[in-house]
Design a binder for these strands. Structure first.
Length: 290
DNA sequence: ATCCAGGTCGGTC
DNA sequence: GACCGACATGGA
């Protein structure tokens, strides 16, 4: 099938279609963990992973196109993950059922860190714009007008204004300083996956613009810490609504609850609850703005 | 117009 | 420790 996009041939050859019943491509790509995918005609998603422009779609149980099974974490048995979730947790059970097949991707750590430094008090649609702009201006050109996410060293060399012009606002200085710390060897992302969780958090907190929430995003989405549980405004809202209705609890209490309650795959539970909260229409805002 | 967005940080009490 | 406002910008 010689698919063409914008008149130019895509990536050749497309791989053999793969059957995978426990995977929901759309939910996985649109739940807010990745910022570089776009849904196009025919149900095809296009995006960039590392230095590859990929195109993939799901038809029923079948995946077509560039199926990167490592990136999509297809080796993980979803039933085993769900089996670790607490029994008698009805809200989580409902969320999992509603979005069955949603998986936590294995993303690249620098891109994840940079994207989430850019994310603070930004809407997801704006984060996507910023990441796209950074890539377009400073990332390695790939085929068909796509660009890789810029390397740490390339961001580190930029001026404050060059980053500012990518709509980063007050986050520009944080991204620049973080890039320079990593590029200069003050912080090393590579050993994070092998560290103890607490130690890895501590390491990331050295970076400017990185607090508990963003550190947990990086550890969950790009370092294999399935227990990491980022608490943002959406999850906070969901936890209050689902587990502490009409009770006053502090943010700290919510974090402690989450860490003790959801188990070794708390991060996966977080994604189901997060996506559910954003799509259920019960939050203060009723629509997903992506 | 006004509020709020996948927060973080440095200042208060 | 918990609480508070500043920080930039744009979407709803």
């Amino acid at each position: 099938m010689p698919e063409r996009i914008n008149g130019s041939e895509w990536r050749t050859p497309l791989r053999t279609p793969v059957r995978h019943p426990d995977f929901d491509l759309a939910a996985t790509l649109e739940c807010g963990q990745a910022f570089r995918w776009q849904r196009g005609p025919g149900g095809w998603f296009t995006g960039v992973v590392g230095k590859r422009a990929l195109r993939v779609r799901q038809v029923g149980d079948t995946l077509e196109g560039d199926v990167d099974s490592h990136y999509f974490a297809l080796d993980i048995a979803l039933r085993d993950v769900v089996a670790t979730f607490p029994v008698d947790d009805e809200p989580l059970r409902v969320a999992v059922q509603k979005h069955w097949g949603l998986r936590v991707l294995r993303q690249e750590s620098w891109e994840t860190l940079a994207s989430f430094i850019a994310s603070s008090t930004k809407q997801i649609v704006q984060i996507r714009q910023i990441v796209a702009e950074l890539s377009r201006r400073f990332g390695e050109p790939l085929r068909d007008g796509y660009h890789a996410f810029p390397l740490v060293a390339d961001i580190a060399r930029l001026s404050h204004k060059e980053l500012w012009d990518c709509k980063l606002g007050f986050r520009a200085k944080n991204l620049l300083a973080a890039a320079r710390m990593i590029d200069g060897g003050k912080v090393d992302l590579r050993p994070l996956p092998a560290m103890e969780y607490e130690r890895a958090v501590e390491e990331l907190l050295k970076l400017p613009g990185v607090g508990e929430k963003i550190a947990n995003c990086v550890l969950l989405f790009s370092c294999g810490f399935e227990q990491a549980f980022p608490v943002d405004v959406w999850i906070e809202r969901a936890l209050r609504r689902l587990y502490f209705p009409r009770r006053k609890v502090t943010a700290r209490q919510l974090r402690d609850f989450a860490r003790g309650h959801f188990g070794p795959y708390a991060g996966w539970a977080q994604q189901y609850l997060f996506f559910n909260e954003r799509t259920s229409g019960r939050g203060k805002r009723s629509s997903v703005c992506a």
